[in-house]
Design a protein around this nucleic acid. Structure first.
Lengths: 180, 180
DNA sequence: ATCCTCATGTAAGACGTTACATGATTTA
DNA sequence: TAAATCATGTAACGTCTTACATGAGGAT
């Protein structure tokens, strides 16, 4: 279980609300570890009980109040302990890839449509990562180097996926032309 | 839930036991969708109850008996229905990546050691995928093209990961040299 | 008017992991 | 002699998703 550790990593450099964290999980870090707001609020509750994070209540007007969390010494110690232990093997659930493997039974046109949508999404994500990476390169302070590596992973991953998508497109278009 | 669909895709071309499927999930398709034998046996039980697969009991000597499963027409129909619906978004749980993001608090030497191990694993996987891909290229029949695409995804993914790992190594080695 | 963003949460149920159980044969 | 391979399963527990709930302010 390292949702807690992903949260602690994010809280290393910044105070954040559950909502803030959920946004980060949906964007940058989401490629690597994803979580919905329900999971995050639950985990923040547990981390707070265990004194690994603390929060201050921030009233706002026009908007709902929020809780800004920050990591505690105990939380930092837990992170250090976890960093020393070998990481659990990566897990993936990519339903679109399962579809491509089973594409012999699929309608090529429908799959091509879905492929186009995913290509669009991936291109947008790539552009976001590249913009974020450029920002970080400008400021180049100490521990931003590791955040930069995370973005580099995102960039290389999108590029590899897009290259693969072109191969898929060729095969699907070829299948289509042989059907008519 | 598409563990069931991943299983049905694998059973499209071949009769297989739960054990056989578990091996495939540990290797080729595992990059895309992973599952342990417990999950697979459970799901095969459900698929059988719902008449999406059938099995025949095969006694063996020297080895335990096995059940060889094959997909039914109903199973194939379910697969076709699923292939038409948009795929669920991909989910990832990559603890090592979380570690890199939090590497500011980590011991660079320990992380480098873990990186080396993962590089080894990925290189072996890459070699396996490339060998499998060459086999498929030789026989080039109808629906092996989609299996080939799955392998291509695996290959591109390993290559991208290995390229990224070199960037990580540089940063970690640099961190190390500035510590002394 | 309707949807999106901000902001937090609960609860039920589905899904997944870890541990346990068995037992013959082959390889190191 | 110990560990791995083949082969199937159950039970307990932990994690994750889906649905529900609230409510103001801003954008379309």
């Amino acid at each position: 279980m390292s949702l807690r550790h992903a949260i602690l990593v994010l809280l290393q450099d910044e105070e954040a609300s559950g909502y803030d964290l959920a946004r980060e999980f949906a964007n940058s870090i989401g490629l690597v570890w994803n979580a919905t707001h329900q999971q995050i609020y639950l985990e923040l509750g547990k981390l707070n009980e265990q004194n690994m994070v603390h929060y201050r209540h921030v009233p706002q007007d026009g908007k709902p109040d929020k809780k800004l969390y920050r990591i505690t010494d105990e939380g930092r110690q837990e992170l250090v302990r976890w960093l020393r232990r070998p990481a659990a093997p990566a897990r993936v659930r990519d339903a679109f890839m399962v579809k491509v493997a089973g594409a012999a039974l699929a309608d090529p046109e429908t799959l091509l449509g879905e492929l186009d949508q995913l290509v669009q999404q991936r291109k947008e994500r790539l552009a976001n990562f590249e913009a974020e990476a450029r920002k970080l390169e400008r400021q180049s302070e100490g521990n931003s180097r590791f955040q930069h590596l995370t973005l580099r992973r995102g960039i290389l991953d999108q590029e590899a996926w897009l290259a693969w998508a072109e191969e898929v497109r060729e095969v699907l278009e070829d299948t289509l032309s042989h059907q008519h």
